[in-house]
């Protein structure tokens, strides 16, 4: 039996028009098509500038794609096209269904780690009390010590911020998890913890689209690799076929 996709990206295009530079058009990516089922982890590979982060941001709709469709399953057998939703609908879907973990914590001013992660859990639809408990558990999972929970996140170290970010994105298993270099600032021990966390989420049925700069993470976590080159999807590989050159250079 064919499994229904959680995510179906069709003919997605994104370009930027830079009005300050004589209205120059820069194509981020073009004609991207792929699907993803529950419990599947797709890694995006390619050189920097290939369009990987732009693709993740376009799926999350921080970037507004020029055309195409992004179908997301939100109940069994029911879908929305992220590209045709109103702003209010996107706001409602995002927090509830999608975890997005960027490389850098867009640290909200004057908020502590526990507050940030609790808010994220509340967006997932948890009650205040449950959200707080889930947030505490999520921070423990990524190894943030309790004495740091009420410290403004903006003053934490890069690695700590990254882990707070990961805790917020994974506090309650989302339907779709978007990871943009979520491990880049982590020491070996915390990296190991984060890898195990992501693997366990996939195991529990979370669909993941990721960007990792190292081959080891891709090979340990991903089930498929999509190779981007200059904004085009040029190949699909199994993680074993990937050599380090391909992971970073996609040639």
């Amino acid at each position: 039996m064919r499994r229904e996709p959680v995510l179906d990206v069709r003919r997605l295009h994104k370009s930027f028009v830079l009005h300050a530079v004589s209205d120059r058009t820069v194509v981020a990516f073009a004609d991207i098509n792929f699907t993803l089922t529950a419990g599947e982890h797709v890694a995006l590979a390619g050189m920097s500038g290939a369009g990987k982060s732009s693709l993740l941001k376009s799926i999350y709709r921080t970037y507004r794609p020029d055309s195409g469709e992004v179908w997301l399953q939100i109940h069994a057998g029911e879908y929305v096209d992220m590209c045709s939703l109103s702003d209010a609908e996107i706001a409602a879907i995002r927090g509830h269904e999608i975890g997005y973990v960027s490389q850098f914590l867009r640290s909200e001013p004057r908020r502590g780690a526990l507050e940030i992660v609790t808010r994220s859990a509340r967006q997932r639809g948890m009650t205040d009390h449950d959200a707080r408990e889930a947030a505490a558990a999520a921070l423990q999972r990524v190894g943030i010590e309790e004495r740091l929970w009420d410290v403004y996140a903006s003053v934490l170290s890069g690695g700590e911020k990254q882990r707070v970010n990961l805790a917020a994105g994974t506090v309650h298993p989302p339907r779709l998890l978007l990871l943009d270099e979520p491990l880049s600032a982590l020491d070996p021990e915390n990296r190991e913890r984060a890898l195990a966390l992501i693997a366990s989420l996939t195991h529990r049925g979370v669909a993941v689209v990721s960007i990792f700069h190292d081959l080891e993470a891709i090979q340990r976590l991903a089930s498929r690799v999509l190779v981007l080159e200059k904004g085009r999807l040029v190949a699909e590989r199994s993680p074993d076929e990937l050599d380090s050159r391909l992971a970073s250079a996609a040639r």
């Binding site: 939100i74 029911e78 879908y79 096209d81 939703l85 109103s86 209010a88 609908e89 409602a92 879907i93």
Partner: peptide, 9 residues
């Protein structure tokens, strides 16, 4: 895909 109706405030 069957399109879901979203509850928006």
């Amino acid at each position: 895909y069957p399109v879901a109706r979203l509850a928006v405030p």
